[in-house]
Design a protein around this nucleic acid. Structure first.
Lengths: 337, 337
DNA sequence: TTGTACGCGTTATCAC
DNA sequence: GTGATAACGCGTACAA
């Protein structure tokens, strides 16, 4: 079966291809009866415009790339839903790229993004360097980084939709101080080191202001099969801090299980908070406290920001605010007093 | 900054664009010194071939679409990893589409797949009808369906990488019968009705062969906030079956929590199995038994099959086996005796 | 080995 | 309102 083109439709409807093109693109200069004739021809032949040819002719692909660490999949699910839903509204196609840790595959991803001539890029703040942003910037590809706050940069055309995790941690620690809780631990998550750093910065700052030094950053090397295995050992030797903070459910539940099996009780012996919320925190006993993060909205806002950036050139009325901070709230559950 | 094209490179290297094209595509007919000259020009100008134009010239986009239900993201993460890794090996780009339940957005997805002129499609066996496959087939788009077994179809160009969930359930129930366990329940999962049906078919078949009828299909309507809420009520009124089977972790953990809180003990009072494995099954107590499903491999095999199908026309040596059944094994954990 | 010219399927700018 | 025709950027027979 021959791929049918705009020429075939033109012949079938006995018009020129220009007219067919007009019908496709809803140009209102075409007479009603010819429009109908063309529509019928399109129907009859099952014609679908070739987006590739359109892309070439318009220098616009109506496609945006999304780049995500391959292990972050389950954790970014809701953000992705937000991204996809808004993309659908604006009729954007999505090219999806994953980066694997270790070997810097980010280079390859960037390469294919540039070759694909996508109109814009959404980056998760997992794993990329400023240099890599610089490359995308040279090729004039607008991008939005979603997740955590990125450092000040002089790269143009970069948006950022974020939560201020540093502030979150800072406030949390100060709230602890107010309650007289000063023995605070933070469990490392190797999957998202940039977020860990921001949390740690916030905690450090709070401690410093108190004239103290934060020293309970719980880290472990890869020789442990899992954080649970490590923590089981850990709690044999020492008791949990008064307040234990983790980033993801896995670490939180590992802390909970390991400590319970070591004879500790939550929240009587210590309190536990997991920064990133998900349903599993409610499936364990006691339920683990967390933060209500507007994940879906972050995705939706990020994609909407990107679409705005894509039309910014043509539509230079007012400067676009490209730094959007999202808000959160604390979800108090049984794991804290 | 002007988008630089193959012409710019040609001028810079003082050759024709044909030669540049040859260098890009590793044609070995080009002399070494001119190749180097061209390479240098490419470097200097930062030229990246326009994949859109290539796609138009070659009628080939080197892109495949992946279609998935938007809620299935966390559950298909590993399959997706397999898909992405193999796609990367073959240098395929990925267009990502999600379908939402309710309003049949699948139509829109198919529309954009056709327009995009992707070379092939990977479909998760979540939510699509035979009619929709038929449309893709009319447009000659090779596709591979991954997940569960699809019914016999006379649609050409369809591959299937699957687990035989019906057989799995059938074998499981018979194993129960052998142990004298005949009171078996299956908890519904509305997120994946096609898999549920296959499981139910297997159970029905085993019961029928025993001259009995399977009647404990535990279903609940959407008025319940969650399966946990429903099950909490449920176990107040009746005790768990000897063997409870669920599809996903959420239901399994809901059963576990609700039953424990109702005073039952696992596996003493009843046994529990969750078909789809994941790490959370090991985070609850007791650990929930499950099946070891080669998810990553399913993705990898599916993508590899698709790439083979894409070159099949040119390379018609032997018929390709497009029905690939994957194997699984039982993961016995503390939730069974 | 290299260059010329055409085709890939559209959109947009002209004329008419 | 409609129809030629030149882009868009590249691959590739064919010619040189």
């Amino acid at each position: 079966m021959k791929r049918i083109t705009i020429y075939d439709v033109a012949k079938e409807a006995d018009v020129s291809l220009a007219t067919v093109s007009r019908v496709i693109n809803d140009s209102n200069v075409v007479r009603e009866d010819t429009r109908i004739r063309v529509q019928k021809a399109i129907e009859k032949l099952g014609y679908k415009p070739n987006a590739i040819a359109q892309g070439l002719a318009l220098s616009k692909t109506t496609t945006v790339s999304i780049v995500m660490g391959e292990k972050m999949f389950p954790y970014h699910a809701k953000i992705l839903n937000g991204l996809m839903d808004v993309a659908k509204i604006y009729n954007y196609n999505i090219m999806f790229h994953t980066t694997s840790k270790g070997i810097s595959r980010m280079q390859d991803v960037i390469e294919s993004i540039i070759k694909s001539r996508v109109d814009g890029v959404i980056l998760f703040n997992d794993n990329f360097s400023e240099d890599e942003l610089e490359v995308l910037n040279e090729y004039q590809i607008p991008m939005v980084i979603v997740g955590s706050k990125i450092p000040e940069t002089n790269i143009a055309n970069v948006g950022n939709v974020y939560l201020d995790f540093e502030q979150m941690a800072y406030d949390l620690v100060n709230a602890c101080f107010d309650k007289g809780v000063e023995d605070i631990a933070l469990v490392e998550d190797k999957l998202n080191l940039s977020m860990m750093e921001q949390l740690k910065n916030g905690i450090d700052k709070a401690f410093e202001e108190k004239g103290k030094k934060f020293e309970k950053y719980i880290s472990y090397d890869d020789s442990y099969k899992s954080s649970y295995v490590f923590l089981t050992e850990h709690f044999k030797k020492m008791k949990p801090s008064q307040m234990v903070i983790t980033l993801r459910d896995s670490q939180a539940i590992a802390v909970l299980n390991a400590s319970i099996e070591a004879g500790y009780k939550v929240p009587d012996d210590y309190e536990l908070i997991c920064i990133l919320n998900n349903k599993y925190l409610n499936m364990v006993r006691p339920h683990i406290s967390s933060y209500n993060i507007p994940e879906y909205d972050m995705g939706a806002v990020a994609m909407r920001l990107l679409t705005k950036m894509l039309v910014e050139d043509k539509d230079k009325r007012q400067p676009l605010n490209k730094q959007i901070e999202m808000t959160y709230s604390f979800l108090k559950r049984a794991s804290v007093k």
